[in-house]
Design a protein around this nucleic acid. Structure first.
Lengths: 135, 135
DNA sequence: CTAGTGTTGAGAATGATTATCGTTCTCAAC
DNA sequence: GTTGAGAACGATAATCATTCTCAACACTAG
């Protein structure tokens, strides 16, 4: 895979390491987990650099950011079709789901209000099946 | 309106002031705005007390919390039928909307995954009609 | 080669929220 | 009315995620 960043941005070794980590898994990474994981792999990167790298990679569309209910921004690899997130209050696990009706809701919204929709986030919380059974 | 909080929680004058402020408007309040507004009204309340009050009032179901994309938690009065939020990236305005298909998505999710859904949040961002026209 | 600009890493700074702590308030039992 | 236990208050310190600052380093074009 050959990646070229726009303009003056460079795909530095640090940014490549971040991209490789996120791109090769289905996890929802936050900045600190990325820094720790890279450190554990002997590829330590300054935390500020991780934050900057994430911002750049997101702007370039190479990763995708989501904002869940805890204060942390999470990142997942780009290129998957759009999906929403279910978060279990008990175990914290994140499950992805999607439904075709969502597109219709967005269409309806922009038709009614005249707004231009750039993005959206649908976060559902509750108790996942395995936690429900376990309790 | 008579309000009785459960158990050991008390509806103190401070909490009543917060509830009255949120309940009598359709704004989406963050903690600091509440503190400032009450201070301007000559009813100043410690910021920590505002945060604690908001948490208590939310637990009691008297106000409703939403988490938008900026780091701040917002609160709106409870009792309105459920709705979602559209945020304009340019002017920051928040528009409420709703669509019946949403319920179907949630039903589908819990049927498919076996999860119990407690709540959800659908946040859409883009450019509102008036900002679009102005630019 | 060299100037100009992008990038890094460490640490300071920021902003929202939460914890701490001594004091005050509430309320039921005495 | 007094007391005692626990809830609540307000000011301030602490925390947590994130952003900023700045000096040292690395590319890239001329």
């Amino acid at each position: 895979m050959i990646i070229v960043l726009n303009m003056k941005r460079r795909l530095t070794p640090q940014r490549e390491a971040i991209l490789e980590l996120i791109g090769s898994s289905d996890r929802h990474w936050d900045a600190e987990s990325i820094a720790k994981m890279l450190a554990r792999k002997g590829r330590a990167i300054g935390l500020a650099t991780v934050y900057r790298g994430l911002a750049v990679l997101e702007e370039e569309g190479l990763i995708h950011a989501i904002q869940l209910t805890d204060g942390k921004k999470r990142y997942e690899r780009a290129g998957k079709e759009h999906h929403d997130h279910f978060i279990c209050k008990l175990c914290g696990s994140i499950t992805e789901f999607s439904h075709p009706a969502e597109a219709r809701i967005l269409e309806h919204l922009s038709r009614e209000t005249g707004a231009v929709v750039h993005g959206h986030e649908f976060v559902v919380f509750g108790v996942c099946a395995s936690c429900r059974e376990a309790s």
